[in-house]
C-alpha cells in the first residue's frame, strides 16, 4: 500500500491510543464483562449465557460508541480545527487522507475490541472453568462485532465528510439503530405498493444490515454459525464499507475546507 496512506493510518491509531476518553470506554466495557459474572451468579444455571449475552452486548454497544466517537472525532475535528490544512498542503491526495483515516480507525477498533473481548473471554473462563468447542461461536460473534464496527466507522467517515461533528454523530447513531432493524425495514418495504415500494425498497437496501451481524444470542447458546454466513457477512461488510468510504471520498474530493 501507498506509504502516505500508511503514515496517516499509523498517526490515526497513535491519536486514538493517546486519547484518554477511549480508555474510559474500554474500562467500562471490561467492568460490564466483570459485572456479568455477578449477574450470572444470581441467575441460576444460565451463568454462561448471561456472561456471553451481557459481555458481548457491552462490547458491541461500547464499541459502537467508540467507533462513532473516534470515527467522527478524527475526521470532522480535523476539518473543524484545520489540522487538515497542513496535511493536504503535502503531496497527500484527498482520497489518501480518507482511506488512511479509515484504516487507522479500523486498526484502533480491532485493538479495542480485542481488549474488551479478552475481558469477556476471561469472565467466561472464570464461570465455566474451561473453554469448549461451543465457545467458538463467541469468537465468531466477536468477529461479527468487528465487522459491524467496520461498517459503522465507514458510515461515520461518510457523514463527517459533509456535515458537522455533532450532526455526523447523530446521523451515524440513527443509521446504527435503523440498521439493527434492517430486516424489518425490508419487510415494511415489501408490504408497500407502487412507487412507495420502489423507494422504500431502495432505501431499505441502502441501510446497513446490522441484524445479520448479530449472533450474540447464538453465541450465548453455543450454537454453531454456518460457515456460509461468516463468508457472506464478511464480504457484505467489506462491500458496504467500500461503498461508504468511496462515497466519502467522492464528497470530500469536492469539498471546500472552511
Amino acid at each position: 500500500m501507498n506509504s502516505r496512506v500508511l503514515t496517516i493510518a499509523a498517526n490515526t491509531f497513535r491519536e486514538a491510543v493517546r486519547d484518554r476518553v477511549l480508555y474510559n470506554l474500554v474500562f467500562f466495557a471490561l467492568l460490564m464483562a466483570g459485572g456479568s459474572i455477578l449477574v450470572g451468579q444470581i441467575s441460576i444455571d444460565i451463568e454462561r449465557q448471561v456472561v456471553v449475552n451481557l459481555g458481548l452486548t457491552a462490547v458491541s454497544l461500547f464499541g459502537v460508541v467508540i467507533a462513532i466517537f473516534i470515527g467522527i472525532g478524527l475526521v470532522s475535528k480535523e476539518i473543524e480545527k484545520r489540522t487538515l490544512y497542513t496535511v493536504l498542503a503535502r503531496p497527500v491526495r484527498r482520497w489518501e487522507f480518507i482511506v488512511g483515516k479509515f484504516f487507522g480507525l479500523v486498526i484502533t477498533l480491532v485493538v479495542n475490541t480485542f481488549l474488551m473481548s479478552l475481558g469477556v473471554l476471561l469472565a467466561l473462563l472464570y464461570v465455566a472453568h474451561k473453554l469448549e468447542r461451543g465457545d467458538l461461536t463467541v469468537v465468531v460473534a466477536i468477529y461479527f462485532i468487528v465487522l459491524q464496527f467496520v461498517v459503522v466507522t465507514a458510515l461515520a467517515l461518510l457523514f463527517s465528510s459533509f456535515s458537522s461533528p455533532l450532526l455526523s454523530a447523530v446521523l451515524a447513531f440513527a443509521v446504527f439503530i435503523v440498521g439493527t432493524f434492517a430486516e424489518d425495514l425490508r419487510g415494511f418495504a415489501a408490504m408497500s405498493q407502487g412507487v412507495t415500494r420502489v423507494g422504500a425498497t431502495i432505501a431499505a437496501y441502502l441501510m446497513p444490515n446490522f441484524a445479520a451481524l448479530n449472533v450474540i444470542a447464538e453465541a450465548a447458546h453455543a450454537k454453531p454459525v454456518a460457515g456460509n454466513l461468516i463468508l457472506f457477512n464478511t464480504v457484505y461488510a467489506l462491500l458496504y464499507a467500500l461503498a461508504a468510504v468511496a462515497g466519502a471520498v467522492l464528497i470530500f474530493e469536492r469539498r471546500n475546507l472552511k
Binding site: 498517526n11 497513535r14 491519536e15 493517546r18 486519547d19 480545527k81 484545520r82 489540522t83 490544512y85 497542513t86 498542503a89 503535502r90 503531496p91 497527500v92 491526495r93
Partner: peptide
C-alpha cells in the same frame, strides 16, 4: 499533488495534532 513536495505551507493561526 507532487508539486507539493517542493512547497511548504503555514496556515493562519495554525493548529496541530496536540497529542
Amino acid at each position: 499533488p507532487d508539486v507539493k513536495t517542493e512547497i511548504g505551507f503555514l496556515p493562519e493561526q495554525p493548529y496541530f495534532y496536540d497529542y
